[in-house]
Design a protein around this nucleic acid. Structure first.
Lengths: 340, 340
DNA sequence: CTGAAAGCGCTTACAG
DNA sequence: CTGAAAGCGCTTACAG
């Protein structure tokens, strides 16, 4: 049963034709160059031996691997799988595959992973790891590989990106709380080295100002990372510093879930004592207690767009960078209510 | 800045030595074959040009790609990311990379993905998609690629696997409920074409029998898939068929979460009216309402073991198949209590 | 319509 | 210690 690996040369030998003839038949685009009867014989023999062209050899020759590398900071964070799905779905349509690797947040490790992927001749890279000022991006740029960031962007605008419209999301969240009657809210700020954390903070300040809230009443507390534990710690600090607060705007859902932990420790109820809003609408946040009000971000669509963008960049070298911003949508659930 | 791609030949030309000399220097294992001064000159020039060996070319020559393909049924199911992480961590240690793709549960699509990976010359495959009787595995076997299944196994034992000890997990869950005093429980059976669903069902029946529960009192209801929606539907059916039931043993956490939906619809409280136990301990099930009692499965460790196993298989061709069973652990939370 | 040849960038026995 | 040569499995201009 175990088939010996068949090659073009092997088939050509069996059939008594030249390898280039067999090669032409195997590629649908060049098949028409070969006589009908010959083509049929070749196809039949190939099928018989379960011939599978060696794409590595083809890539070596054509200098295109049809592989796009995808670098993730943390695959166990539920926002990334949908992005990955979107990327894969779109790439597959165009004959590309994704080679995705989890690099963590450590930049030395990320650089190592980038080098690994470049050594494997990826045609392009999609980074979900971008920081606002990212030496890894500089590294990629220096290597001259096609590049797109997804979910996060860098500040300098050297590379195209597909991101969420963070201002729009924050504005919806802020106005939802204001409409409920909240006058004392705290923004649990996400990491400032990431565009998401930074833009949500700016978005919060802009939205508050736009609604006439004085700057000194737009309270903020720093979260050290996008984790549940950081959310818990920041929540404790927030409620210590601003005991009058009746609502928390968390930088993302993980931070929001951490707030649930923190509030519970403090003996405060959500939403009766404190309302909580998250960001992302990750899976299952509708099942936590209470169901989380959150800004829904279109992660799958983001992946699709990122793939399209990177493939486009592959075709027309240059052409300028762009940023695609997807609109978020506030999903109101049980974690927000009128202030006591 | 944008570096022209440097090759062995290019370097050799610049340095006035033969490509094979440069090649020997670039590989730490053969570096000692070259004179110290020459080696230093080569290294310096390589660094200056940011030389990065083309692994595709090397693979073509050596016939080893150092790539392991990983095929997933659903990356958005939270059990898989930790497995993937474990696989990647372990492979990286040995100089391999994972080429993972989401193939869905559709077998035609899976076969297509397998062919893609084989065409890209992966050295081995790790399947997280295995069904008990799996034509895709036959396909892989016919192609003669090294193979391991993870999380799920096939019935015929043709391929090595790393799985959870399902009997042990179910036994803990059943005995926990019996100890609480439950006498009327329903097993919400997972898909029977998957080893997990099948073995958990058998494990349930064995555990009940071992504890003296007559066969006809070991109630079961089929869930059509491992999804929240299937769990909801099966829960409704279960409570209609067995209104006396005071506990549900769900085939996995997704089904268990679906039970929460179903119970809510029926106006039943968990755990006061009905206790629920899940399987997997996926992220955040400690945060749902009520926190889910569930069988914790070591997904990350499963990934690590699978990677080790597949690499071992790569070294010593043949050597017989084996199954590695990891021990689960029951995590008791708020979704189980004494029956009313 | 088909063939002969060169070459993608490596590795590795074989000489010397 | 270094070089010359062959070859991994393809693709693709160039002939005829």
């Amino acid at each position: 049963m175990q088939q010996k690996k068949m090659t073009l040369k092997g088939l050509a030998q069996i059939l008594g034709v030249h390898t280039s003839t067999v090669g032409r038949v195997m590629d649908p685009l060049t098949r028409h160059m070969v006589g009908e009867e010959v083509a049929q014989r070749v196809l039949k023999e190939a099928a018989k031996h379960g011939y599978r062209p060696n794409k590595m050899a083809a890539s070596l020759r054509t200098r295109r691997s049809n592989i796009v590398g995808v670098i993730l900071p943390d695959i166990t964070n539920p926002v990334f799988p949908p992005i990955v799905l979107g990327i894969e779905d779109e790439l597959r349509k165009h004959g590309y595959v994704a080679l995705m690797t989890n690099a963590g947040e450590d930049q030395a490790q990320q650089r190592f992973v980038v080098d690994q992927l470049l050594a494997r001749q990826v045609d392009a890279l999609i980074l979900a790891t971008a920081t606002r000022d990212d030496p890894v991006i500089s590294h990629c740029l220096a290597a001259g590989v096609a590049l797109v960031t997804v979910n996060r962007s860098e500040d300098r605008g050297r590379v195209s990106s597909v991101v969420n419209d963070e201002y729009a999301g924050m504005r919806q969240a802020v106005e939802h709380l204001l409409a409920l009657g909240h006058r004392h809210m705290v923004h649990l700020v996400g990491p400032q080295n990431l565009s998401t954390g930074h833009l949500r903070k700016e978005g919060y300040e802009l939205a508050m100002a736009a609604n006439g809230v004085p700057r000194e009443a737009a309270w903020e507390v720093e979260g050290s990372a996008y984790t549940r534990e950081a959310g818990r710690a920041a929540c404790l600090e927030a409620m210590a510093r601003y005991p009058q607060a009746t609502a928390i705007l968390a930088g993302n859902d993980l931070l929001a879930l951490g707030c649930y932990d923190g509030l519970r420790e403090l003996g405060l109820r959500c939403p009766e004592d404190v309302s909580v809003v998250g960001h992302n609408d990750m899976p299952f946040v509708d099942m936590v207690n209470p169901p989380l009000t959150t800004v829904r971000i279109s992660h799958h669509a983001m992946g699709v767009q990122a793939a399209q963008l990177v493939l486009k960049g592959l075709q027309q070298e240059g052409g300028g960078q762009m940023e695609i911003r997807l609109k978020p949508e506030l999903v109101v659930r049980g974690s927000t209510a009128k202030p006591r």
